[in-house]
Design a protein around this nucleic acid. Structure first.
Lengths: 230, 230
DNA sequence: CACTGATGATAGTAAAACTATCATAGATGA
DNA sequence: TCATCTATGATAGTTTTACTATCATCAGTG
């Protein structure tokens, strides 16, 4: 374990230990691994991404990187879990003393649909790049033949935790609504998918004049959720 | 081109020529390729699936299969396109002379959410297995670094066509609803995702006593859509 | 009966996804 | 301060994947 003079100012997120072999947040190499893997996956896509290429970029070796993660899939799960944990944190922070559950849900939707401006001071990870990865690659974390095992091992804890947190607010708004969990998971998935569609398959979305994509997605989801809850 | 005595009784679906090198529906080997690839992908998952394994199963060779599809990704796109085209067909068939658009939309939702009983007479493809593939693997058709190229080439035409068909009904029900395309693509994605979640990450869904998963997903989506449209 | 076109048989290649072994340098703890 | 531990690097090797290339053969077609 190295000591890093900046460690105290960094946002440290505790994730399930089974996600990694060695916590990348603990060491300099680990932090470079995280920061550069986000950039590299964003650039070339998860399928093209390899530990060998990453090692070249950070001037390390394949073998060294395999000491942090069993394989690149685990790294992906780690990165998206990190993102979900960070979203949870932001949601808690911003809804902290908002009494109205409807208002809290709106704030959560805002956070969910906004392409991320990282508070770059708090972490060396490129937030915008990580957000693009989440949009494009996050489903691949669980769309595998090992879902059940991975779920058993708790690898999707952060996502489920985030969903549960939002679902609680949904149920607070309308305790009789019968599908809070389905509504929330649909929301979480749709927020990402709609952004992806807007960028790549625009005929599957609607564009509103004078609105950004993010604003349109927000408006759509807000409309959808609150109509569902009344 | 071989002649097949059953060809006239088979459901032949015309797909974008760029999906394949040689149309698998034209030959005996091609049809075995399709039928067995569906079973094999269902069994071992798309990542583990290779042309080599498939060739062994149908007692052919890798080289022969590569004459039908450039690579396994194209085969996946072909299979899910085939499914979407088939759904479109079923929707047209079943809503044929239903005057009420709301009723038509309900029928479409039913078709969308029902795990498929193939009319096994019409095709040698295992409909239930294909449906499981669509649920688990369909997103991988477009979540690649080549989305834009592939879209340009028209590889996602069937999906977009299906979505457009449903969106037209949505707009017929409520012409002032501002997000028909977003609503429909959310619906199409949610129908699959919720089924997947119910099977693998159940805390993200709701279960209703005395209802099957499919019925619950239908009820959720129906509720969601019709509330959105009022 | 010559020809075409589909398939099979066989071989080969580059890259991906690891695993293993050993050396070394810097930090730690007794 | 010396022994040790740990992280990393250097290097090499393996198996599997995802193809590509070449040639033979066989069945149907004109």
């Amino acid at each position: 374990m190295e000591t890093n003079p900046f460690i105290s100012t960094q946002l440290r997120i505790e994730l399930n230990e089974r996600l990694y072999l060695r916590d990348p947040q603990d060491t300099d190499l680990g932090r470079r691994l995280m920061a550069e893997s986000v950039k590299l996956i964003d650039e070339i896509g998860f399928e093209q991404f390899t530990f060998k290429r990453l090692a070249q970029r950070i001037e390390s070796t394949e073998a060294s990187l395999y000491r942090y993660f069993e394989n690149k899939h685990r790294l992906l799960v780690y990165l998206v879990s990190w993102y979900w944990a960070w979203l949870s944190y932001q949601m808690r922070f911003h809804t902290h003393n908002v009494p109205s559950p409807a208002e809290r849900l709106r704030l959560m939707l805002r956070i969910l649909t906004r392409g991320h401006q990282t508070d770059a001071a708090a972490t060396q990870v490129d937030g915008a790049a990580l957000y693009r990865i989440v949009v494009k690659e996050a489903s691949k974390a669980y769309l595998t033949k090992d879902v059940d095992e991975d779920n058993q091992a708790g690898l999707f804890r952060e996502y489920k935790r985030l969903a549960a947190g939002i679902a609680a607010v949904v149920s607070e708004i309308n305790p009789t609504y019968p599908y809070p969990h389905m509504l929330v998971s649909t929301l979480l998935e749709a927020a990402r998918k709609q952004l992806f569609f807007a960028q790549h398959l625009p005929s599957l979305t609607n564009t509103a004049a004078q609105k950004t994509t993010e604003e349109t997605v927000y408006a759509f989801l807000e409309n959808l959720v609150f109509k569902a809850l009344t």
